[in-house]
């Protein structure tokens, strides 16, 4: 049997279907393994400078409350910043509390020499001050800066699609802070060890 053009043409549909089939198998595999999510949104901020956003007021005017958050705060940072976007009304944020608490206490202990000290900042999304204060109480007041985004406008500038989300920002004198990692969903120890810890080791 000689291969003619007819043979090639007749084989094309089967080849196309095979290609699609392999793709589907890999997608299903990815779905099960958790590294393929058709609903994922990759926001484009990673690798870019911190976006401009409206200045956010602090939780309250009392001196014990951490200061608010502005774009300028990122200008002269000397250490990496982990920015949490959260709200007391969101269930995953409540689930995130123990980890944040643990992280804050471990950061308070003097660090080993090769890891850069990390600061935790917060952006509270569309929340009531009293409920937010309650959440902070439970989390052990982890943030050294906290901006209240009552209207949710600053969160949009950060490309936030839902709470909680986390950004890791590295000091960069030229651009005034550069985003190196962006996570959606609650931050867990596994995610922290996989994505954030390696980044901290690269800082001189």
């Amino acid at each position: 049997m000689t291969l003619t053009r007819r043979h090639l043409l007749a084989a094309l549909p089967a080849l196309g279907a095979a290609g699609l089939g392999v793709g589907f198998v890999r997608m299903l595999h990815g779905l099960n393994q958790g590294h393929f999510d058709p609903r994922a949104i990759n926001t484009p901020l990673t690798g870019r400078p911190v976006p401009d956003f409206p200045a956010l007021p602090p939780l309250s005017d009392t001196p014990s409350s951490p200061p608010g958050l502005t774009r300028g705060d990122f200008q002269n940072i000397k250490q990496p910043i982990l920015l949490f976007i959260w709200a007391s009304w969101c269930l995953p944020c409540v689930e995130e509390i123990p980890f944040i608490r643990h992280l804050a206490t471990s950061l308070a202990i003097p660090q080993s020499s090769h890891t850069a000290p990390l600061a935790l900042w917060g952006l509270c999304y569309k929340d009531h001050p009293t409920q937010a204060a309650h959440w902070l109480e439970q989390a052990g007041h982890p943030f050294t800066r906290l901006g209240m985004d009552r209207e949710g406008q600053a969160a949009i500038d950060w490309g936030v699609t839902g709470v909680p989300e986390t950004f890791l920002i590295m000091p960069d004198p030229q651009t005034g802070g550069r985003i190196v990692w962006h996570g959606t969903g609650s931050l867990t120890d596994t995610l922290y060890q996989a994505h954030i810890h390696p980044q901290l080791e690269t800082v001189p």
Partner: peptide, 8 residues
Amino acid sequence: MVQRYGEF
């Protein structure tokens, strides 16, 4: 919008 949320 694209600058914030990407092509998505």
